Simulated assay, not measured.
Amino acid sequence: MKYLLTARAAAHGMLLILSLIVLFHLLILTGVIPFAIVWGGRLKSHQQMLSFETVSIGLNLLMLAVVALAAGRLRLRVNSRLITGALWLMTALFLANTVGNLLARTALEQLVFTPLTLLLAVFSFRLAMDRKKITVPASA
């Protein structure tokens, strides 16, 4: 798999996709996109949507930071085991989300977000498998 998908391509793909997902959730939060099409079509109120979308945006920003650290785009001193552990956790989260999207009530989640979360799981797996040192000194 190392030769089919480079860690660099996986990182860049994740940075792009996660950035677009944050934008998507911001559009839901602002009402541009109706919240009925996300979260499996199970959200019942505006307040519930605000809670779920706020958590989602926060988690996606955290995952963006993890990938940016792994890719050397964010230069902070962080233990490489912590970053690798976070990438394994992200792999599991994206796999679980893929199953959730398959069971969603909305066609958008089934047809668009299922392959997207599966791709993110593959990218996360590729980065987690990378054995290089991930830590980048703050002065670099």
Rank of each mutant, 00 (worst) to 15 (best):
residue 94 F to E: 07
residue 30 T to C: 13
residue 54 T to Q: 04
residue 15 L to D: 00
residue 29 L to M: 11
residue 140 A to P: 02
residue 59 L to H: 03
residue 57 I to Q: 01
residue 65 A to V: 13
residue 48 Q to G: 15
residue 98 T to H: 01
residue 31 G to T: 03
residue 32 V to Y: 13
residue 39 W to A: 15
residue 65 A to K: 11
residue 44 K to Q: 15
residue 33 I to S: 05
residue 126 R to H: 03
residue 111 L to I: 07
residue 48 Q to P: 10
residue 50 L to P: 11
residue 17 I to M: 14
residue 88 W to P: 13
residue 11 A to M: 07
residue 135 T to N: 13
residue 100 G to P: 04
residue 95 L to Q: 01
residue 43 L to N: 06
residue 18 L to M: 13
residue 20 L to S: 06
residue 134 I to F: 11
residue 95 L to S: 01
residue 76 L to N: 00
residue 121 A to E: 00
residue 33 I to P: 09
residue 124 S to Y: 10
residue 90 M to L: 07
residue 36 A to F: 10
residue 104 A to E: 03
residue 103 L to D: 08
residue 128 A to W: 10
residue 30 T to I: 13
residue 15 L to K: 02
residue 30 T to Q: 06
residue 40 G to I: 07
residue 114 T to V: 02
residue 42 R to D: 03
residue 112 V to W: 01
residue 109 E to V: 06
residue 27 L to I: 04
residue 83 I to H: 05
residue 133 K to P: 11
residue 76 L to D: 03
residue 123 F to Q: 00
residue 124 S to R: 11
residue 119 L to T: 14
residue 5 L to V: 11
residue 4 L to Q: 14
residue 49 M to Q: 14
residue 47 Q to A: 15
residue 128 A to N: 12
residue 6 T to Q: 09
residue 14 M to W: 02
residue 137 P to G: 09
residue 97 N to E: 02
residue 56 S to E: 01
residue 113 F to Q: 03
residue 58 G to V: 12
residue 37 I to F: 09
residue 5 L to T: 10
residue 8 R to A: 01
residue 119 L to M: 15
residue 80 S to H: 02
residue 106 T to K: 00
residue 131 R to Q: 15
residue 31 G to Q: 09
residue 125 F to R: 11
residue 122 V to C: 08
residue 29 L to T: 05
residue 60 N to W: 07
residue 31 G to W: 05
residue 132 K to Y: 10
residue 122 V to I: 15
residue 96 A to G: 13
residue 113 F to T: 07
residue 95 L to N: 03
residue 128 A to L: 10
residue 119 L to F: 10
residue 68 A to F: 09
residue 115 P to A: 05
residue 39 W to P: 04
residue 101 N to K: 15
residue 67 V to S: 07
residue 49 M to E: 13
residue 84 T to E: 05
residue 85 G to E: 03
residue 126 R to A: 03
residue 80 S to F: 02
residue 125 F to C: 08
residue 79 N to A: 05
residue 10 A to R: 07
residue 6 T to V: 06
residue 73 R to S: 04
residue 20 L to Q: 00
residue 108 L to C: 09
residue 81 R to D: 08
residue 86 A to T: 00
residue 50 L to D: 14
residue 9 A to Q: 05
residue 44 K to Y: 11
residue 125 F to S: 13
residue 95 L to R: 01
residue 9 A to P: 02
residue 124 S to H: 14
residue 13 G to H: 00
residue 91 T to N: 11
residue 72 G to P: 06
residue 45 S to N: 11
residue 122 V to K: 06
residue 58 G to K: 08
residue 108 L to A: 11
residue 81 R to C: 07
residue 63 M to H: 06
residue 3 Y to R: 15
residue 79 N to Y: 06
residue 134 I to E: 08
residue 7 A to I: 06
residue 25 H to V: 02
residue 70 A to E: 04
residue 67 V to Y: 08
residue 18 L to S: 01
residue 23 L to H: 09
residue 83 I to K: 00
residue 46 H to R: 15
residue 57 I to K: 00
